Simulated scan of single mutants.
Amino acid sequence: MTGPRRDVDDGLRARLHEAAGAHRPDRARMLARVERGMTAGGRGPARPPLPGWVRVAGATAAVAGVLVAGGYTVAPAVRDDAPAQRSVATSPGPREPGPLRSSGVVDPHSNEFWAQSNITLETSAPLTALTVELRVAQTGSVTSTGAWRSLPEEDFTFAVDERDGFLRYRWRLKPGRTVPAGEWVFAGQYNHERGGRDAGGDRYSATATAASGRVSVEGGFAASG
Rank of each mutant, 00 (worst) to 15 (best):
Ser141Ile: 06
Arg101Trp: 12
Glu154Asn: 14
Val132Met: 03
Arg149Tyr: 00
Thr123Lys: 06
Gly104Tyr: 09
Ala147Gly: 02
Thr131Trp: 05
Leu173Val: 05
Thr178Asp: 07
Phe158Asp: 06
Val136Gly: 02
Ser141His: 13
Leu130Arg: 04
Gly140Pro: 01
Ala137Met: 10
Ala181Pro: 07
Arg101Ile: 13
Glu122Pro: 09
Glu96Cys: 13
Ala89Gly: 03
Trp184Met: 06
Arg177Tyr: 09
Thr178Ser: 13
Arg163Ser: 12
Thr128Ala: 14
Phe158Gly: 09
Trp114Ile: 07
Thr143Ile: 06
His109Asn: 15
Phe156Val: 02
Leu134Arg: 03
Ala129Pro: 12
Val106Arg: 13
Thr90Cys: 08
Glu122Asn: 13
His109Val: 15
Ser110Asn: 05
Pro126Cys: 14
Ser150Met: 03
Ser141Glu: 13
Thr143Ala: 13
Thr178Leu: 14
Asp161Thr: 11
Thr143Tyr: 03
Gly146Tyr: 00
Val142Cys: 04
Val106Thr: 13
Thr131Asn: 05
Ala181Gln: 02
Phe158Pro: 00
Gly146Arg: 00
Thr178Ala: 11
Asp107Asn: 14
Thr139Pro: 06
Ser102Thr: 15
Pro126Met: 09
Leu151Lys: 03
Thr157Lys: 09
Pro92Tyr: 11
Arg101Tyr: 12
Pro152Ala: 05
Ser91Pro: 08
Val136Lys: 08
Leu121Met: 06
Arg135Glu: 08
Gln189Thr: 12
Ser141Tyr: 02
Val142Leu: 09
Leu173Phe: 05
Gly104Gln: 12
Val142Gln: 12
Thr128Ser: 15
Gly146Cys: 05
Pro152Tyr: 03
Gly104Ser: 10
